[in-house]
C-alpha cells in the first residue's frame, strides 16, 4: 500500500528555510504569500492487509525515525483508502 508521509517543522520552531523561500517569493512579486514552511515528503510501499494496518505501521515509522517529535510534525495519507 502506498503511504505518503509529510514532515514539517513544528509551528513554534523557527524555520529559516521557509523564511528565505518566502522572501524570495516576495522578491518575485508574490506579495500575497506568508507562512511558508519547508518540510520533507516521503513515499513508502508498505505491505499490509488493510489501510488501518498500514496507518498504524506508518505512525510507528514516523514516531521512531521519519520525524523527530522535538522539532517536527508529521501527517500521512494511505493511498486508496
Amino acid at each position: 500500500m502506498l503511504v505518503k508521509v509529510f514532515v514539517t517543522p513544528r509551528r513554534e520552531i523557527l524555520d529559516p528555510q521557509g523564511r528565505a523561500v518566502e522572501q524570495s517569493l516576495r522578491s518575485l512579486g508574490f506579495d500575497n504569500v506568508s507562512g511558508v514552511r519547508v518540510g520533507r515528503y516521503i513515499t513508502l510501499d508498505v505491505r499490509a492487509s488493510s489501510p488501518d494496518e498500514a496507518r498504524a505501521e506508518a505512525r510507528r515509522m514516523c514516531e521512531q525515525l521519519l520525524a523527530n517529535p522535538v522539532i517536527e510534525d508529521y501527517r500521512f495519507e494511505v493511498e486508496g483508502s
Binding site: 523557527l14 528555510q17 528565505a20 523527530n68 522535538v70
Partner: peptide
C-alpha cells in the same frame, strides 16, 4: 534532551 536544527542564517 532537545535537537539541533538548521542555523538561523542558513
Amino acid at each position: 534532551p532537545g535537537a539541533l536544527t538548521r542555523n538561523r542564517s542558513l
